[in-house]
């Protein structure tokens, strides 16, 4: 599904965000990426999402090099990837329905298709009774679920979440993580960058730990920190 070979990303002024990262993620996996701030988690996500290009190395998604990909092919790559951010990034002047429908309009979906598909994902996200509300009328957890519904609406093969629970309390965070797990069980590969130690330790999923731009640990059924 995702393959990185010896990927490095340097920023100006000698900042080495990632150096020599090699890793593989298979279809259907549920992966946590952990590590302190500045370890390179966000950079890794930006590279997979092709928001930025690596300084060195190769990245393949579904067997295609996204490093050699032409800029005009990037939108079609992104349609296969759903993305969720810490700050939700919803449009404040649109309802829940419109926010989710927006992602379908952007990829040129028809009216009928939107009417059928949007309620479907909103049900999956548990937002059926919030359809006509505006983001400011929702709690943080609900807003994040809208963002997840938006990321899912175009049926991506991969869902990336960058600190999805960073702005939420523990109970709400569990709600979001459970939602992501359910999505994973329906066949979507899920990649979560997180600081939420308790959640990572409880779920015992695959954990990739980054520190100062390097993969320091990659274990299945892992914990947030080293098992001692």
């Amino acid at each position: 599904m995702i393959q990185l070979y010896n990927v490095s990303k340097f920023y100006p002024k000698g900042i080495k965000a990632l150096s020599g990262v090699t890793l593989q993620i298979e279809k259907g996996e549920f992966v946590f990426i952990v590590g302190p701030s500045g370890a390179g988690k966000s950079t890794l996500i930006k590279l997979i999402f092709r928001e930025e290009l690596p300084t060195k190395g190769q990245i393949y998604i579904k067997g295609r090099s996204i490093v050699r990909m032409k800029p005009r092919e990037v939108p079609y790559l992104r349609r296969q990837i759903g993305i969720v951010f810490q700050d939700f990034r919803l449009l404040p002047d649109r309802t829940v329905f419109e926010n989710v429908a927006f992602a379908m309009q952007v990829v040129g979906a028809g009216r009928a298709e939107i009417k059928r598909r949007v309620p479907e994902v909103l049900r999956l996200a548990g937002l059926t009774d919030r359809t006509q509300m505006y983001p400011r009328q929702l709690s943080g957890g609900e807003q994040q679920r809208v963002a997840i519904a938006r990321a899912l609406v175009n049926k991506p093969v991969l869902l990336i979440a960058d600190e999805p629970t960073g702005n939420l309390d523990l109970d709400t965070s569990w709600e979001i993580i459970n939602c992501l797990q359910e999505i994973n069980q329906r066949g979507t590969t899920v990649l979560i960058a997180t600081h939420a130690r308790e959640i990572v330790d409880t779920l015992r999923q695959r954990v990739i730990a980054l520190d100062r731009g390097k993969v320091v640990r990659d274990e299945y059924r892992g914990a947030y920190a080293h098992a001692t």
Binding site: F49, R72, P75, Y76, L77, R78, R79, I83, R89, L91, F102, A103, V106, V107, G108, R150, A151, N154
Partner: peptide
């Protein structure tokens, strides 16, 4: 700009 960046994130082409 927010709307535009979201459009790009969900895979809108430049012309869209």
């Amino acid at each position: 700009r927010r709307e535009i960046s979201i459009m790009k994130y969900v895979g809108a082409t430049d012309w869209f």
